Each structure stands twice: as C-alpha cells, then as structure tokens.
Simulated assay, not measured.
Amino acid sequence: MESYKSFLERVPVFDDFLNIANSNYFVAVPSDWALILTDVKGSTKAVQAGRYQDVNMVGAASITALLNEFNNRNLPFVFGGDGATLLVPPELKKDAAAVLRRVQRWAQKEFGFELRGHYFELAEIYSSGQQLLIGKYQLSKGNEIYQFRGGALSVADERMKSLNGGMEVRPARLEKQPNLTGLSCRWLPLKTQRGTVLTVLAKATGPKEAQFSEYGLALAKIREILGGDFRNACPTQEGALSVTWPPKTLFAEAKALPGFYPLRVGRTLLRTFFSFALFRFNISVGGFSPGRYRSEMISNSDFQKFDDVLRMVLDCSNTQADKIEKFLLEREQAGALKFGVHRSSEALMTCLVHSASQNQHLHFIDGAHGGYTLAAVQLKRKATS
C-alpha cells in the first residue's frame, strides 16, 4: 500500500493559478482518507463586533496544530477565514481527531468561540458520486498550497451544516494545550495600495462538465482586468507591510502559548519586541534577513485559492473592482455562477512561520472587517434564493 507521504509527493505541482481549471494537474484522493471541516460558530456576529482578527486566528489554529502534531508541513489544507478544511490520511485519523478536540477547547477557553468540527470518511462522500481531487499550487520553492476540486467539499459542507452524515467532533474536556508554535499575527492590517481590497467568492453553477471552463474564463478575465498578473493585486505589497510594538494582536498571540497567562503575555512582549527591532532597524541575524523575509511574504501569501469555491482577496483600484464585479454579475445573470464580494480598505494577515530564515513560512490573507465571512453570507443568500 502506498504511504501517504509518497502519495502527496506525486501530487502535480503548478505555478500558474489558471491551472485550477486544468484537470491534468489534479489527482484523486484515496477513499480511505478523512476530511475535517471547521468553522467558528457565530463568526458573522463576531466580525460585526470587530473581532475579525480573533476569528482568523482561531480559523488558522486547527491547521497549525495538525501540522505541528505530525511534524509535516505537506498535509493538505485550505484556510477559509473563519475555519479550515483539512485532509487526513488513514495513519493519522485517530490522532487528528484528538488534536482537533484540543483546538476546540482552546478556542472556547481563550476566545469564547465555539469552533465547530466535523469529520467525514471520504468513502462516505464518494458514495454520493462526488470526487475529491487535489493539486499543488506553488507559491515559491518549498512553499505550496493545495487546491481542492471535484465536488466532495461542497457535499461535506452541506452535510456538516445539516448534521447529515459524518461525525461531529466535540471539544475535549481536558485542557491540554494544542501545539500552536509558529502561529502569529504581528503585522498591522495591510492598507490598500491601489484603492480597495476586494474579497471575492465565486461558485460555478452550470452543468458539471462546463464548470471548470467557467472558472478558467473567470480567472482569465480577472487576470486581464488586473493588468495581466494576479501578483499585481497581492495585498502583501512592500508598501503595505508595517509593524509596531507592542502589536495590537499581543493578547491573541499570547493565548497561543502554553502556561500561566501573565507569563505568556510577558514572553510575547519580549518575542515581539525582538522581531519589531529586527524589522524596524533592518538587522540581519544568523540566516535571517528582514528584507528577504518581506520579499518572501509577498510570494508566500495565499490570497487566491480554490476549494470547490474560488476565493480571492485582491488589492486593486476601485475601477478594477467595479469591472470585476460587473463581469461576475454578467456571468451570474447568464446562470453560469453565483458570487459574493466584500470591499474594505485593508486586508488581514495571519502568519504560520516554521522557519523565518529558510523561507518556510505561509501567510493567510483575508479581507478586513469580515472579508470572507461577509462575502460568504452574500453567496449563501444568493444560493438559497
């Protein structure tokens, strides 16, 4: 039997985001794998109350904890703003559920959030006639994020929300801290450099055989509007990257550490001051270079991804945003897709840093003031109308 590591090594890699529409870059996940979905219950209200950074922190925590538990950065996942999607191979199923329970307890204790978790055997989803295919989108050498397609995630999400199938995962009673090493959010919100931050969710609704042609058409048009290169609209541009001390997210980051809370805050103050000084005065230490790290942050940002829904957070001009919305509306009126959007003056970044000196870091991007969450509300309303 093929090991999960061998399987993941042969998943195709592509560096042009348009290739999410190309089936040649995707392979089917074996039916004995499991799928874990998480989301913050009541995230819309939390976002409206100004707690969007906390929502993002908790949304990224299950990813961080599982990668750390298995010491494997190559496990497939997608960050969704208020939650995550994770794939678990047979060898890790039992431990993965235990890790998720600890993250749920942590979210409840530290933030007062109910992090819902649902676990599905892929064989159960496949029995409905859907597939789960994955491909790797390369951000930079050694940093890849998985793209998911095939319809299985949509089915799992619907079943989770209706509690129809799968297994609901409930928080652990014990208060063992999940390993959240590397999870941080020290950077100030990324102010738009071009006019507006546009968060886009789009889901093709036409005949199944035509849906990926639709995604290809949409991506090609959006890229054209953005000047021929998606990177033109990446929110983590040099002019947007700014740090201060103490960081506004000091207490949120302290909550990710184990131990007595006042000591956690003290440790976080020291760690963030050291980081702030390096960037403020452009100090290189060992193999770490602030300038190189900033450049890597731009390439290692997940501002565009696909998990049966096209997700993008774009820093663009108001004119470009208007054109993108106009195009999406035309395709919606043609019955080809449904979409939700949200505009803000900033984007948020939550960081997962394995090694700052060896280009092993990933940056989760969301629109500020509830980008993905509020765009999803709009998309859901259209889908059910």
Rank of each mutant, 00 (worst) to 15 (best):
S3I: 02
Y4D: 07
R10F: 00
V11F: 06
V13Q: 09
V13A: 01
F14H: 04
L18P: 00
L18S: 07
L18I: 11
L18R: 11
I20D: 00
N22V: 02
P30I: 13
S31M: 04
I36K: 04
A46L: 05
Y52G: 09
D54N: 13
G59M: 11
G59F: 07
A60C: 12
A61G: 09
A61F: 02
S62Y: 08
T64W: 06
T64E: 02
N68P: 08
E69F: 00
F70Q: 02
N72R: 04
F79S: 00
D82M: 04
A84R: 03
L86V: 04
P90N: 09
E91F: 10
E91C: 10
E91K: 14
K94D: 00
K94L: 03
K94T: 05
A96P: 09
A97S: 07
V99S: 10
L100H: 05
Q108W: 11
G112S: 13
F113Y: 14
L115Y: 08
R116Y: 12
H118V: 09
H118E: 13
Y119S: 13
E121A: 05
Y126D: 00
S127V: 01
S128L: 08
G129I: 11
Q131L: 03
K136P: 07
Y137F: 15
Q138F: 00
Q138R: 15
Q138A: 13
Q138E: 15
L139D: 08
G142D: 04
G142V: 08
N143T: 14
Q147L: 04
R149M: 15
V155P: 01
M160C: 05
S162E: 13
G166V: 05
V169S: 01
A172E: 12
R173T: 13
R173N: 14
R173L: 14
K176P: 05
K176R: 13
P178Y: 11
N179A: 12
N179H: 14
S184E: 15
R186P: 11
W187N: 05
L188H: 01
P189A: 11
P189T: 09
V197S: 03
L198D: 05
A202Q: 02
A210W: 09
Q211D: 03
S213M: 01
E214G: 01
E214N: 02
L217D: 11
R223T: 11
G227P: 12
R231L: 13
N232L: 12
G239V: 00
S242R: 14
V243I: 14
T244W: 01
K248F: 14
A252V: 11
K255Q: 15
A256I: 10
G259R: 03
Y261W: 11
G266L: 15
R267D: 02
T268L: 10
L270K: 07
R271M: 07
A277I: 13
A277K: 10
L278K: 12
F279Q: 10
S295D: 15
M297A: 06
S299M: 09
D302P: 03
K305C: 03
D308T: 12
V313P: 01
L314A: 06
D315Q: 00
C316W: 01
S317Q: 01
S317C: 08
L328H: 06
L328Q: 01
L329R: 12
Q333L: 14
G335K: 10
G335F: 08
S344F: 03
S345I: 06
A347E: 09
L348W: 11
T350D: 06
C351Y: 04
C351K: 03
S357E: 15
I365V: 15
H369Q: 07
H369D: 15
G371Q: 13
L374I: 13
A375P: 08
Q378M: 14
L379A: 08
S385K: 06
